[in-house]
Structure formats: C-alpha cells, structure tokens
C-alpha cells in the first residue's frame, strides 16, 4: 500500500488564507447574510428567509423571469462565441508559419487584441459599428442591410459576438500554436511516408496534441464570456431593451441601481454556484484526461 501523503505543508499558506479571508471570505459571508434579508439602507435589515430564492427560481416572478432570461442569454452567448472561436482559432494556428521571420511578426500581431483592455475594445466597436461615423456600421447600412445595434436585436448580438471573436480568437490560436509546436517533426515525416491526407494528419497527430490546450482555452473563454460585463455595457448598455443584458449587468443594475441587496445577493450566490461547479467539472476533466492509469493498489488506499 502506498504511503499516505503528509499534508502539513499546507499550514504554510495560512498567511495567504488570512488575506483571502479579508478580501473574499468575509464579503462572501456578508453576501450570504444579505440574501436572507431585506434592507432600506442605514444598516437596518429585515428577515426574509428563503423569499428571495423563491422569487429568483420562479420563472413567473419578476426577479425569476429576469434572472432566467439573463442566464439564458449568457449561456447562448458563451456557446455561440465558443463555437466560432475554437474552430477559427485552430484554423488560424494551423495556417501560422512554423519557422522563419514570419513567426515573430505573426505572434505579435496575434497578441495585439489580447492587450487591449475590455472597455477600450468596447469603445472601439461602439464607434466602429455606428451607422453615422463608424466604418463598419456605415458600410453595412449602405449595403442596404438594416443594421443598427442601438435598436435592433440581431445587430446588437452580431456586434457583440463579432467583437468577442475579434478580441479573443487570438488566445485560442496562440494556445493551439504552442500545442502544435510541441509535436516532433518525426510524426509528420512518418505521416508523409504513409501518404496520409491532410485531414488524417490533423485528426491523428495534431488534434490529440491540442487536446489539453483546447481544454484550457475553452475553460478560459467560457468563464470569461459567461461573466462578460464591460464590452456589452459599453457598446449596447445591455440593450436594445434587455436583449444583451447578461447576468452580471443585471446584477449590477439590481445591486447598485435599485439597491436591492437581498435580491442581488441571492442572484449572485446562484450565479457563483453555477460558475463554481462548471469550473470544478472543467478542472477535473483537465487534470484527469491524460492522467496515467491509476495505481492498482490505490483502490482501497484511503482506508
């Protein structure tokens, strides 16, 4: 039987745990306290029990309808941008030069959008997509297409999706490029000798190499797009109507706009749980996907 691991070294992270307690755990506890109470300010709170959670999870209630709709929009947004950015990122990484002076130029150009802060990206696209002074908006509307992200549903979604694809496809591409660079040349030579087609080279050599980096890329992009706030806030302000309002925009509206701390707390706890469990699933898959077979005798090693 394997010798059990001594975990005492974890005590060395105690100082960090104290800092985390100050900036994360105490505020989180406060949020939990808020979620079962109502307040009109002045630190006066009134017990509300599970009332906010009942409202939140009831699609017919005002809060519930709003939350579930925003959650639905968030999930759709994440799925749409992932289904565009991942294949596109792989394609771009396959087309990038493997050696020569082009490599550096390519890497720098690819990394540029990643360096632009979220609110600046929002501002760029807000202006770029305007129909009066923006190049994109002006061109598209002069082609005879009804394009106006301030009052038309599809234009608004098209703009924020295009913006996200512009901003983050490079991340997937760069990750995949790093994954591709790590496969030895011998693999490709063997494939050439066997007369393998481009597609089977991709399927049998390149895609398995990308497995891990793609998981990381998908995790990063999913989490980032699922909590997206700044870009739609700057471009559409969550509109037209509520059509680009994600959970985080709604959360800020409820907490800081309406000062409904109880509702906002209940909402953020549920939002947090969804993110926590999604992260756990991704992390577990990521750390176990290529793990070597478990040791034979570890099966009952816990006891």
């Amino acid at each position: 039987m394997e010798k059990p691991l001594n975990n005492r070294a974890w005590f060395l992270v105690m100082p960090v745990a104290l800092i985390v307690a100050f900036n994360a755990i105490l505020p989180l506890m406060t949020v939990v306290n808020y979620s079962v109470q109502d307040t009109f300010g002045n630190n006066q709170f009134f017990w509300n029990g599970t009332g906010w959670f009942k409202d939140l999870l009831d699609p017919n209630a005002e809060l519930g309808g709003r939350f579930l709709a925003a959650l639905g929009r968030n999930v759709s947004f994440s799925l749409i941008i992932l289904s565009i950015e991942v294949p596109l990122g792989i394609l771009v990484s396959l087309c990038m030069p493997k050696k020569g002076p082009g490599v550096a130029a390519c890497l720098v150009i690819m990394a540029l959008p990643l360096l632009v802060p979220w609110n600046v990206v929002g501002t760029i696209w807000q202006i770029f997509a305007r129909t009066d002074i923006g190049l994109l908006g002006w061109t598209v509307s002069h082609l005879g297409i009804n394009y106006n992200y301030t009052n038309e549903f599809f234009s608004a979604w098209f703009t924020i999706i295009l913006m996200d694809v512009w901003h983050w496809t490079s991340l997937i591409a760069l990750l995949c490029y790093a994954g591709l660079k790590s496969s030895p040349d011998a693999f490709y030579q063997a494939a050439r000798i066997d007369g393998a087609s481009r597609w089977s080279v991709f399927r049998a050599i390149e895609l398995p190499k990308l497995n891990r980096v793609l998981l990381i890329g998908v995790l990063l992009r999913f989490m980032d797009s699922f909590m997206i706030y700044t870009e739609p806030f700057v471009v559409t302000g969550g509109g037209p109507g509520n059509s680009t309002t994600g959970v985080s925009i709604d959360l800020v509206k409820i907490a800081l706009g309406q000062f409904d701390l109880g509702k906002a707390a209940a909402m953020s706890i549920v939002y947090n749980l969804i993110i926590l469990s999604t992260c756990w699933v991704f992390y577990t898959v990521m750390t176990n996907v290529d793990a070597p077979d478990r040791p034979r005798d570890a099966k009952d090693g816990a006891l």
């Binding site: 039987m1 394997e2 059990p4 691991l5 001594n6 975990n7 005492r8 478990r294 570890a298 099966k299 009952d300 090693g301 816990a302």
Partner: peptide, 9 residues
C-alpha cells in the same frame, strides 16, 4: 493531520 490519506477512486 491525525489520519493522512491517499487518493481514493
């Protein structure tokens, strides 16, 4: 601390 353990499958 008292009863260190191994991973369990």
């Amino acid at each position: 601390i008292r009863y260190p353990e191994n991973d369990h499958y």
